[in-house]
Design a protein around this nucleic acid. Structure first.
Length: 1132
RNA sequence: GGAAAUAUAGCUCAAUUGGUUAGAGCAGCACCCUUAUACGGUGUCGGUUAAAGGUUCAAGUCCUUUUAUUUCCA
């Protein structure tokens, strides 16, 4: 490596991995991240919220993706001049952590408090939760994600919890926090609920044989149901099937599918032999009726006959039944509310016609679907009052019927809950069987049989679980539903569909937020209650709590020495408060949903409102957040819900919202990014072993290439199929090209000692090609700015990549190379340096949000020599300004023409087999319109040098030389002729060369179809020049003169010779500035060619002399035009 | 079962928002260029735009139904 302080750094090769490490060190040594914040005015904040990761698992490559997106916009806003503080955070509570600890300690949930104290358990959780912190921090650093890791918020800290309590208290005060129940899997034996995680344990579901009943629900005859009684004489029943007959006393509704077809059938009850008419799903008739009985004689039927006659009396849609009332099947419990609002038909989306009758018996308290359906339709539950006057279900917590169910009082509802002896005793019958017998005799059962199905069992006791209503604390989110929906519409979602669809629909169907979790490691619910549930106190701060504790101590309920240092369980459970009447109040034992922890981070990260009110105000709400789409109902929801509710309940938040002009949202812009799949589109998982290790990837490619690959390949919200080959492609194509461009620049800049110390040459005074690339560069800056601002990083990356590859490297540098070689220090050369320098530094800035390392290296390598800007880092610089006056559309257009024409000429050369080193005399260009010639003349030199052609001739069609083609412009014509398009298009296609000429002369033409068309309705191109080699692209047509004169031939040979000498120079390792002498042994034809172009050749190869030496023996043998020659070169 | 996303060349993506011969890159093949040594150029190979139906003068694009993959919820 040649390197001194005054020279630009040159590298042997592109090594992004090493670059990453070097730049990281540079950032660390110079506190660049801190400076990127401190150098921006605090009065111009841009707020980003970091969704806290949980550090109890290893990070994967998808974390690199998600965090790259966050990083991009933070860096972008920084170089746009905003102060972007980003506080890191850790999500530290929750089930995954508890499970990991249970696994590590070899215990189950049941052992907590027994084999291990809650204290020891929680200490283990506290340790576990930060287990991978170092690895996460390492990744954060290596991937270049700038976030404040020094002062993160941690959700288990007392201050954090205190903020959560404050929020809960605000909600509680306004009646938005209440105790209700949900139906959950419950094990009567162990007396606990089972989490969905526990239900997903292997072996939970087992095949069992249960008694199933198809029950007859008698329809009340009234004006709503009258239509159903048409043409029948018997009583009318709805058939509903259940595998849990014990839930029938609690029946409160029947659910139908609105789109399902149902039939009404007259027949006889098989147990009572009474005539009945029943309703069931059309598709299930075959399961309940024998084909032989259809339309059999009703008169001939005798009770007990095997074949029971039946007849279809009508067909209905489920929707027609909605609102029908029926008589309560087992009327043990009844009250006014039930009388009025229960025992009716409701719609439900879970009804199918796979089993049963297509009508579902619904007992709201014993099924979660049932519960939801009843709630949605405002059907009250069948409940009884307990000793405290509280509503409880018909089955108690031991799994026995309550006294009100007189016939079965005290009986276990499930056979399995009885002991083995009891079940084997003489005359024992399961409760389900007893219920069946009762219903049969009462003409309420249509069918009873054993049914085998899969049913969940408790992994603890191995007995079937019950779905059972359990106490839970809820946040009344439904109270602010409309506001949440309205405010969601003010949020900018990327992509939009997640906001309107997934999130919007979720809000439309909002239910109250179940906050309760029966665990140990989490934020405790700060609610204390009297034992009978009478008085209730919600604590909103540590001070409040201490106050209450003091009262309690005075009342003698707690020891004087008591002091609470940790708000977690078990300590907080030792707190017993005193009610206004002097009775003890105990804490509600639940923890709260961890999602509340993270959703409250805007407030709790600052310990608001206890501290940092200013900091909070300056960072509320977030301008931008980004997480995976799986957070839609997670973090995105909880942030939104808490923010909207606080905007309604909290005076402090209201005041701040008013001050900062916030309508009540927690975030204004949100990207929900997609998943990272493996290269075959499969989900990455530990089991399949197809995960990609982010550390290995970064070690191999550095962080920039993977970041650029992930961002440029697919929009963030599309799933990404991660393929390491794609990273390599990005490295070669984009970074490789940019690196080459830099290398090219510094190679000559170092030779010429270009340090941008000369005065700036006015852009308008620079050559056409410089003005062109500067024009494109400005257009690019504007586009990229708009893309970033619109949260479209993919479009930004693609635009930058296209500029670097197609325009900067393969056109600008390619055509400007000779300007850098010239040994004089003309303005032209200076222009070239200044222009390329500007392009490189500008590109560095534009790409810096996505590829922060390489951009840094590129920028600082250049800027540290020129000192053009005072910034020590590209991330401290500012986004390139857009100069509209430097954008020249006409210039861009004619340069595009030059590129197209060159490409056409090269393709013609290829077609006729004349390579580019052989000069040709001219090309012919048909003139398209008035400005065409002027445009081409300005870029003529570029075309000629690129294609090695001597001249351009323009031709017009006056000689009838050119054959033209005419095409309809459908877009323009469509508006004009509409339905006649077909005939018009055909007529235009049939126009003769003369007609076309007339149209061109007059500006319009009347078609045979009587439509008047003008020049804007069609596109006319010169298609062919008969007798010439011709190529077309769009409107452009190029004809090539393929005649090779002797003079051209000699020139061609000279260029071949130059090429061979240059190859030799390179082989011998000469510097590009070394001068040489050349001796050559060749035939006369070649020598004549060399001699005739001697000065040109010498200049090209930096030779002082070229001599013919037919005695030459050393030298290198090379081949030119089929002849072997010898060339010997030597440095002077 | 509900909601959402996606489906275009072997692979990764475009297609000016409805305008007529659906384009790039990669991979493959052939040739070429280069004092930027692997970036590039020219050509070649590759498509019933997931399927079916509809609206329209005109559909990859709009509508309906279906299929596949994925996610979230139940």
């Amino acid at each position: 490596m040649r390197w001194n302080l005054l020279m630009y750094k040159e590298y042997k090769q592109l090594n992004l991995s090493q670059t990453g490490k070097d730049v990281l060190e540079f950032w660390k040594q110079n506190d660049i991240f801190e400076k990127s914040i401190s150098s921006r005015p605090a009065t111009n904040p841009y707020t980003f919220y970091e969704g806290p990761p949980s550090a109890n698992g290893m990070p994967g490559i998808h974390h690199v993706m998600a965090r790259a997106i966050k990083d991009i916009f933070c860096r972008y806003k920084t170089i746009k001049g905003y102060q972007v503080k980003r506080k890191g955070g850790w999500d530290t509570h929750g089930l995954p952590i508890e499970l990991a600890v249970e696994k590590a300690l070899g215990i189950t949930k049941d052992d907590i408090g027994k084999k291990i104290s809650v204290k020891d358990y929680n200490d283990a959780c506290r340790k576990e939760v930060m287990r991978y912190t170092d690895i996460w921090n390492d990744l954060t650093e290596k991937m270049g994600y700038w976030v404040d890791l020094e002062n993160p918020y941690i959700t288990y800290k007392n201050e954090y919890i205190e903020s959560l309590w404050w929020i809960l208290k605000e909600f509680h005060t306004k009646g938005l926090l209440y105790k209700g129940y949900t139906v959950q899997p419950y094990s009567p034996k162990s007396g606990t609920g089972l989490s969905s995680h526990e239900l997903n344990q292997p072996g939970t579901y087992k095949m069992v044989k249960d008694t199933s009943i198809t029950a007859q629900f008698k329809v009340k005859r009234d004006k709503d149901s009258e239509f159903l009684f048409e043409n029948i004489t018997s009583d009318l029943f709805i058939l509903a099937w259940t595998t849990t007959p014990w839930t029938l006393p609690a029946n409160c509704a029947l659910a139908v599918g609105e789109k399902i077809d149902y039939v009404k059938i007259s027949t006889f009850n098989p147990y009572t032999f009474l005539p009945v008419t029943v309703v069931l799903a059309k598709d299930l008739v075959g399961k309940h009726f024998k084909a032989e009985g259809e339309n059999a004689s009703f008169a001939d039927y005798k009770g007990g006959d095997k074949i029971i006659p039946w007849e279809v009396k009508g067909t209905y849609k489920g929707s027609e039944f909605l609102g029908l009332h029926y008589y309560q099947l087992m009327p043990y419990v009844i009250n006014e509310d039930l009388e009025k609002n229960a025992f009716r038909v409701i719609p439900a989306d879970f009804v199918t016609t796979e089993d049963g009758t297509g009508i579902v018996h619904t007992a709201s308290v014993f099924g979660s679907d049932d519960f939801r359906a009843c709630k949605e339709n405002n059907v009250p539950s069948v409940m009884v009052k307990d000793e405290f006057g509280k509503d409880v279900p018909l089955v108690n917590k031991q799994g026995r019927f309550v006294d009100e169910v007189t016939d079965f009082a005290g009986r276990y509802v499930k056979e399995e809950y009885y002991s083995k002896e009891e079940r084997e005793a003489e005359g024992f019958k399961a409760t389900d069987v007893l219920i069946s017998i009762k219903l049969k005799t009462e003409n309420k059962a249509f069918d009873v049989k054993k049914y085998e199905h899969s049913y969940p069992h408790s992994w603890r006791s191995d007995e079937p679980i019950l779905y059972y209503p359990l106490d839970s604390w809820f946040i009344r989110t439904t109270a602010v539903k409309d506001k949440m929906v309205a405010l969601n519409k003010t949020i900018n979602w990327k992509p939009e569909s997640t906001g309107t669809g997934r999130f919007g629909n979720w809000l439309e169907n909002l239910v109250d937020w179940n906050l309760s979790r029966s665990r140990y490691w989490g934020t405790p619910l700060p609610i204390w209650r009297e034992e009978n549930g009478g008085e209730e106190l919600c604590i909103g701060s540590i001070a409040d709590l201490n106050n209450e504790i003091e009262k309690s101590i005075k009342a003698g309920l707690m020891p004087e020495s008591f002091k609470l240092d940790d708000l977690h369980r078990p300590y907080v459970d030792d707190v017993i408060l005193v009610s206004s009447t002097g009775t003890p109040m105990y804490r509600e034992p639940d923890l709260i949903d961890v999602w509340f922890d993270s959703g409250a981070m805007p407030y709790a990260q600052w310990h608001f409102p206890f501290e940092n009110k200013e900091a909070f105000k300056n960072a509320y709400p977030a301008d931008f957040i980004a997480e995976g789409v799986d957070q839609t109902r997670g973090w995105f929801f909880t942030l939104h819900a808490i923010a909207v509710m606080l905007s309604e309940t909290s005076d402090e938040v209201k005041a701040i919202n008013a001050e900062v002009g916030n309508g009540g949202v927690a975030f204004k812009n949100v990207i929900s990014n997609g998943l990272v799949l493996d290269k075959n589109g499969n989900k990455m998982s530990k089991r399949l072993g197809n995960g990609v290790d982010p550390f290995e990837t970064i070690e191999k490619f550095g962080a920039d290439a993977p970041r650029w690959y992930m961002i440029s390949n697919a929009a963030p919200w599309d799933n990404l199929k991660f393929n390491a080959d794609g990273i390599d492609e990005v490295r070669r194509k984009f970074f490789g090209t940019l690196y080459n461009t830099y290398t090219f620049f510094v190679m000559y800049a170092n030779i010429d000692k270009f340090t941008y110390s000369e005065a700036e040459i006015a852009i308008t005074g620079r050559p056409e090609i410089d003005q062109w690339i500067i024009s494109l560069l400005n257009t690019l800056s504007k586009e990229v700015d708009a893309f970033y601002a619109d949260f479209e990083p993919t479009k930004a990356a693609r635009a930058i990549q296209d500029f670097v590859d197609a325009h900067l490297s393969n056109w600008y540098v390619r055509l400007s190379r000779r300007r850098f070689w010239r040994s004089d220090n003309s303005d032209d050369k200076l222009s070239a340096y200044q222009t390329l320098y500007t392009c490189l530094t500008t590109v560095a800035k534009l790409m810096s949000p996505i590829a922060p390392f390489f951009a840094e290296r590129l920028y600082t390598d250049l800027n540290s020599i020129t000192k053009k800007e005072a910034f020590e880092s590209v991330h401290l610089a500012y986004f390139p300004e857009y100069h509209a006056d430097l954008v020249n559309a006409g210039l861009e257009e004619r340069m595009q023409m030059a590129q197209d024409i060159s490409s056409l000429v090269l393709s013609l050369r290829k077609k006729v087999g004349i390579n580019v080193r052989q000069p040709l005399s001219k090309i012919l260009l048909p003139i398209l319109d008035k400005k065409f010639k002027g445009q081409i003349e300005q870029v003529k030199d570029l075309i000629l040098s690129e294609t090695n052609i001597k001249g351009i001739e323009y031709i017009t069609d006056t000689a009838g030389f050119i054959k033209k083609k005419i095409k309809p412009n459908f877009k323009a014509l469509g508006v004009k002729v509409g339905k006649d398009m077909k005939i018009v298009a055909e007529a235009i296609g049939n126009l003769s060369q003369d007609d076309i000429a007339k149209l061109e002369d007059n500006g319009d033409l009347l078609l045979p179809t009587q439509h008047l068309i003008n020049l804007t309705d069609v596109e006319i191109i010169a298609e062919d020049v008969p007798g010439w080699q011709v190529a077309n692209l769009g409107k452009l047509t190029v004809a090539l003169d393929v005649t090779i004169t002797d003079e051209l031939k000699q020139e061609g040979l000279s260029r071949e010779f130059i090429n061979r000498v240059q190859n030799l120079r390179k082989e011998k390792g000469f510097e590009v500035t070394d001068k040489i002498n050349v001796r050559v042994k060749c035939d006369e034809t070649l020598w004549e060619a060399i001699n005739n172009n001697l000065s040109y050749i010498c200049a090209e190869i930096l030779a002082d002399t070229i001599v013919l030496d037919n005695e030459l023996t050393e030298g290198e043998p090379v081949e030119i035009d089929g002849n072997e020659i010898l060339i010997a070169i030597s440095k002077i």
